[in-house]
Amino acid sequence: MSLLEFQGVERRFPVRRGLLDALLRREHVWLHAVRGVDLAVRPGEILGIVGESGCGKSTLARIGIGLQPADAGAVIFDGAPLNGPDPKGRLQMVFQDPYSSLNPRMTIGAQLEEVVAHYRPGLTRAERQGRVARMLDEVGLVQETAQKFPHALSGGQRQRVSIARALCPDPQVLIADEPVSALDASVQAQIINLLRRLNREKGLTIVFISHDMNVVRYLCDRVAVMYLGEVVELNDSAALFAEPRHPYTRALIGAVPDVHHPHREGLPVRGEIPDPFAVLQGCRFAPRCPLAETACHRPQSLDALASGGAVRCWKAVSGTLS
């Protein structure tokens, strides 16, 4: 049983490449940001979505809370298709930069009260303030924070405010898009602990989007790895890190610098994420994959493995990956 499910979700953006193209009324070039993503979020879990820039993870997040429509496929939330943001606020999002997602001209208290008033119009002022006070307490902020403006807070405090705001409508799912990437390591740890506590004590389901493999490994129960708009591997976090199957997952884990083990095995992957406009047949990682062969240029599906998890690589599925 899943709480939030992506079913064959596609998203493409029209891109005009220049003035000349526009004048000549040439056809749009399509940037395929998300292609055929099937992903089920289980109630009470922390699901990690990892990948490098341009892999489509943030677009998927915005589709997941109804901020953007899918061009094809569907998002099913709590048994019903999601068409736009949930009116009850049961799906909430936390963004990477807490400063640009808070109103600089409103006190923290006023901003949070506004959210409470939107979802619970019947409450009195005192009841709203009481709820804001509980939310601040929940995220570990002192009550005086309510009188402050965002600029008077540190980065970590602002991110706590963003989380408090997301908690105001009592959501079932929190989608957090790189919520700790802009924070220093010592503060990052505070926010990660907070997310863990919310998940453990309130049963909050969290979709955690990140490029940081160490954070994902520590925080998430399951992990989906994305590359150029596709999920290339999905598994329990422990299994994925202990035995990554897809060559891209292996490369991604292998490239993370470790504090105590400076010398790693393996070759670096070649090149960079290719032009997303390029039409690639078959495996989209093949041009950079050290193990690619001719057969990799036929379309790949995300296949379940007998040992658990799923991978979009015919070689990993057939066990011919060295």
């Binding site: 540190s154 010592s186 503060v187 990052q188 602990n193 863990r196 954070v215 520590y218 504090v259």
Partner: peptide, 23 residues
């Protein structure tokens, strides 16, 4: 020591991270 202890790569999933309080 505190900076290293705050990193997620150094702690098992069963225990909380050790942040540095304050700023």
């Amino acid at each position: 020591r505190a900076l290293l202890a705050a990193l997620p790569g150094q702690t098992g999933r069963e225990r909380d991270l050790t942040p540095i309080e304050g700023s």
